[in-house]
């Protein structure tokens, strides 16, 4: 898919995703080694965006499995379309049972769910398993077969093996420790907060109307907030929101009034706001 690490960065940048060297290297390796990519990091640093950008670059279809508590086999893998099977049985009254049986367990009655969809067919696909840590431990067991051999076993049909391996991205917020077995099958990538320079480029790209000097100040203030010990530090998503806010307010430069009025965009807890205003020498709210 990619020829070199630089190629990865350049082509991801075309889609509007600016990748750090770590991200580009790992994506390149995941493609070359054919291994799934496990992405961890705080909320709002672009884990899901990465999968979307890779899909766009590769011209592949994005198949997304959103994990939640209680997601199970029939939601993740496949399900038989019972209603349709019943209709089929009642429609073919004169058939023998053997004919009906072979017929109702055919592909026509199979409802494919994301994991199965991703390994069937010949077109390129990117499989995004989002918020893997939200799923129960049993689902991880389900993922193991899919991720290591790219195959799914349906008892009535046999084992379905991928003819073309999808590019797999798993994301996790580390709210639960994923099992060692799952981690072993993946390349591990931690996306942290970007370096100052990279974040400035991201802000400039996403908020084109913002001038260079203001973007620089915005990123510096966010950097200072991240160095404080807050309950929830602002992420890249919040930086971009803040830049949008400043643009909408028509603020040409940062000053105390503007920062105080818009701090709520960056910080989501009242005690964080108080702490930050004290440290940034804003007057009492």
């Amino acid at each position: 898919m990619f020829t070199s690490v630089d190629d990865v960065s350049a082509r991801l940048a075309e889609t509007g995703y600016l990748a750090s060297p770590a991200v580009a290297t790992t994506v390149f390796l995941a493609d070359r080694l054919g291994k799934p990519l496990l992405v961890e990091g705080p909320a709002g640093v672009g884990k899901t965006e990465l999968a979307k950008a890779v899909a766009q670059v590769a011209g592949a279809r994005l198949v997304r499995l959103q994990c939640y508590e209680g997601v199970d086999e029939s939601r993740a893998l496949y399900e038989w379309n019972h209603a349709k099977q019943l209709l089929r049985i009642s429609a073919g009254r004169d058939e023998t049972w053997d004919e009906t049986r072979t017929d109702i367990f055919s592909e026509e009655f199979l409802l494919t769910r994301p994991l199965l969809t991703a390994i069937r067919g010949d077109d390129p696909k990117v499989l995004l398993i989002d918020e893997t840590d939200k799923a129960d431990v049993e689902v991880e067991g389900l993922l193991l077969e899919v991720l290591s051999d790219f195959q799914v076993t349906v008892p009535e049909l046999g084992t379905i093996t991928a003819t073309r391996r999808p590019f797999v991205v798993l994301t996790s917020n580390a709210s639960r420790e994923l099992s060692e077995a799952l981690r072993r099958r993946c390349l591990f990538l931690h996306i942290g907060f970007p370096e100052e320079e990279l974040e400035r480029r991201i802000v400039r790209l996403k908020v084109p109307g913002l001038d260079e000097a203001l973007a620089r100040s915005v990123v510096r203030v966010v950097g200072a907030l991240r160095a404080m010990d807050l309950r929830k530090v602002p992420s890249v998503a919040e930086t971009i929101d803040w830049a949008h806010t400043l643009l909408a307010l028509g603020a040409g430069t940062l000053d105390e009034t503007v920062v105080r009025a818009t701090l709520g965009v960056l910080l989501k807890h009242q005690d964080d706001v108080l702490k930050a205003s004290a440290k940034l020498d804003l007057d009492a709210l």
């Binding site: 510096r220 203030v221 940062l254």
Partner: peptide, 9 residues
């Protein structure tokens, strides 16, 4: 301006 106060840190 405003960001000057961040400089020392």
């Amino acid at each position: 301006g405003f960001t000057d106060r961040l400089l020392e840190d």
